[in-house]
Each structure stands twice: as structure tokens, then as C-alpha cells.
Simulated scan of single mutants.
Amino acid sequence: MAAGAELFRRNGYTGTGLKQIVAEANAPFGSLYHFFPGGKEQLGEEVIRTSGLSYIQLFDLFIAPAPDLVSGIEAFFAAGIATLQATDYVEGCPIATVALEVASTNEPLRRATADVFTAWIDAGTEKFGKFGLGREAARTLTITAVNNLEGAFVLCRSLRDTEAMAVAGAATVEVARKLLNENAQL
């Protein structure tokens, strides 16, 4: 499944063939259908759900240990920049890549990506709430961060430049400051 996740991240769902996945995994072709009798679609769902949910750990890695919310968000977006540069703009978010491809053509995969995004929003709402934001404000900030991050990955990969990620991080920080300020005035 790790091979599928890596290939989907780099090539997208439609740009990844079963033969590529089996070759990358160094596995016999028949093993794919043994473990995933539903073929590529079932593998795709599993990859989306498993790898997508693993990204929730980024909140624990960057946001939870931060001395303050703004520092955590800055570290989060800086890591996005570092990933893009380290991978020569090949790696972005595999969930967004697949979601864009299948949103109107493959309902099981669309549901899988929606479930992952929902889990991210729920996790971010909880983590941001620990910095003193109310539930609604924490949810707004989470959706802002996910929107900005995903959009920045698309632009950065296309332009082969990290400016969009830096701008997205700064915009998310501004929203966080505004929400923290509003919360302090309550």
C-alpha cells in the first residue's frame, strides 16, 4: 500500500497503473488482487484513507508542541516549503491530487477523500481549540489552513516556486491572529 501511496502522490490516481504499483512494491501481480479483490479502486480507497489519516499527525508534530498558535502555523507552512524543495516539487498532497481527479467521476474515491478532509478538519479544530479558540473559530482556522495549504501545493508544483506556500502561510497566520484577537475580546 505504501507503493500505491507514493505513486498516487507523484502521479495521481489516473496516472498510476497497477503494473507500476506492483513493480514499485516488488510484489507478484496476483498479490494485488489477493489483498484488493476490488482492484485499483479498492486499493485507491485504502491508500487515500490510510495515508490521508496519517497526515493528522502533522498537527501533533507542528501545532501541538508550538509555544503559540502563530508559531505552530508558521512551522507547518515552512515544512510544506521544505518538502517541495527537497522533492524538487514532485510531492504535494496525495489526497488533493486524487480528489481533483475523481470528484465527479468516482463516488467511492470521492467519499474517501471527503472522509479524510473531514477528519483533518475535526482534528485541526480540536488542536487549534487548545490555543484558546472557540469551536467555531478553530474550525474556521482549520478550513482556512487546509484550503491555503492545498491551493499552495497546486500552485507551487505548477510554478516550481514556493512563493505561493509562503503567501498561504502568512495569510493563515493573519486569520489566526484575527481569530485570537476576537476571542480575547469576548
Rank of each mutant, 00 (worst) to 15 (best):
S31N: 09
A145Q: 12
W120E: 08
A170T: 05
L43E: 10
I95T: 07
M165F: 09
P65T: 05
L100E: 11
A152K: 02
V175D: 10
V173P: 07
L186E: 14
P108D: 03
V167T: 13
P108F: 02
I143N: 04
S54N: 08
R139M: 15
A170S: 05
G134W: 04
C156R: 02
P37H: 14
I95Y: 00
T14G: 06
E41T: 15
W120M: 11
G30C: 12
A170Q: 13
F153W: 13
A145W: 11
G124F: 09
L58M: 02
F59I: 10
L53G: 12
Y55Q: 06
I95F: 01
G169N: 07
D161H: 15
R177Y: 03
S31I: 00
F35N: 15
G72A: 10
R9H: 12
V146Q: 12
R111H: 06
L180K: 14
A170V: 03
F59M: 10
F36G: 07
E45Y: 01
N148S: 11
P28Q: 04
A2D: 00
T97I: 03
L149M: 13
L58G: 02
F59Y: 15
E45F: 03
A114K: 03
N106M: 00
V102L: 01
A145G: 12
T140I: 05
G124E: 11
T162I: 06
